[in-house]
């Protein structure tokens, strides 16, 4: 063996004479550490945002979502200030000022009234909030389950993996809407239960398979072995190393789940199977039971506002998901940075 001292002059690329660093100044306390982490999070968010805003459709869709969110907020404000509950309540209100229900749009009722004399704009705005609650709850449940199931199945493999993947196959094979129809016959489905069922079906179903395939590629990385050599247990490796690397993809599938949940709600409400106060699906259902759905464009204000809202909000979430895909997956970007 060659002694290191003799070779140091010849080979070492170290800059000569590194001074001892002033450790006192570099002694970050608990707060400085938290602050540094917050700064890091902010920086990585900014980096992601810079890529996101390059996608025009993504920005437009995000603006659409914000618009709907503002609509959801505006309803309670309008009810508290300018709208009289007797006239404008989305469920029990009645527009006494008109006799020709469903009345076409006018100054007092910008989107007209429905066959039962209720203000359509008020119904539209009040439904927005429940659509958000439904979509986001379902998405959180889906992604929470799918991420954990995917990471656990990929990490342990074998029997655990086989069990979860066969369950996922089973759920994919089930026709979703038909299953929800059967379930709504068995239970009184309100918004929360609907979100839970959609979330569970999505979480144990297709999303779990996608996240598992991603987790499989993370599981074989050398840093997983390094974590094991460091002394990390199964729990540590799954929750500190695998799941954080799955989260970008999880976020993406969260967006797609929101779309699916809103759509499923609209279908079930249209069929009159949900125990909801008001929703976009129920608005179309009301128009249908009154026989106005087949009346063509003559009674457009009964169908188009709700229908367009469903279309726009669903596509907005989906397209935000696609734009996020570019942030998460560098290969989809037009230019590599």
């Amino acid at each position: 063996m060659i002694s290191p001292q003799s070779d140091q002059q010849n080979f070492s690329r170290e800059p000569p004479g590194i001074p001892e660093s002033p450790l006192v100044d570099l002694h970050p306390g608990r707060w400085q550490m938290a602050l540094a982490r917050a700064r890091l999070a902010l920086r990585s968010f900014r980096g992601g945002w810079a890529i996101f805003v390059e996608s025009r459709i993504g920005v437009l869709s995000l603006a659409t979502i914000v618009l709907f969110a503002l609509m959801a907020i505006s309803h309670p404000i309008l009810m508290a200030t300018v709208w009289d509950a007797e006239v404008y309540d989305p469920v029990t209100g009645y527009a006494f000022d008109r006799l020709d229900h469903p009345a076409p749009p006018n100054w007092r009722h910008p989107l007209g009234t429905d066959p039962l004399g209720r203000d359509v704009l008020s119904q539209l705005l009040s439904s927005t909030r429940s659509e958000f609650v439904l979509g986001i709850t379902a998405a959180l449940v889906t992604v929470g389950i799918a991420t954990t199931v995917g990471a656990v199945a990929a990490y342990y493999g074998g029997l655990v993996d086989a069990l979860f993947m066969r369950l996922a196959d089973l759920i994919i094979a089930l026709p979703g809407i038909s299953l929800l129809i059967v379930l709504s016959a068995l239970f009184r489905l309100n918004l929360f239960y609907l979100a839970l069922i959609i979330g569970i079906l999505g979480g144990f179903g297709g999303t779990a398979i996608i996240l598992k395939s991603q987790a499989l590629s993370i599981r074989v990385k050398p840093y997983i072995e390094a974590a094991r050599v460091a002394g990390g247990g199964h729990f540590h490796i799954i929750f500190v190393h695998i799941i954080p690397n799955l989260l970008p993809l999880s976020l993406l599938y969260m967006m797609f789940t929101v779309t699916g949940a809103i759509f499923a709600e609209a279908v079930l409400s249209f069929l009159g199977l949900l125990d909801l106060r008001m929703s976009w699906g129920i608005m179309i259902h009301t128009a249908n039971t009154g026989g106005y759905l087949l009346g063509g464009t003559r009674y457009w204000w009964l169908i188009i506002p709700a229908g367009a809202s469903i279309t726009f909000l669903c596509s907005a979430f989906y397209l935000v998901g696609r734009a996020l895909d570019e942030v998460v997956n560098p290969r989809l970007r037009r230019h590599t940075s």
Binding site: L40, K221, P222, Y223, A226, A227, H241, P244, N245
Partner: peptide, 9 residues
């Protein structure tokens, strides 16, 4: 390049 978790400092 691969033996460190890219998301950890």
């Amino acid at each position: 390049y691969e033996s460190m978790n890219p998301r950890r400092t």
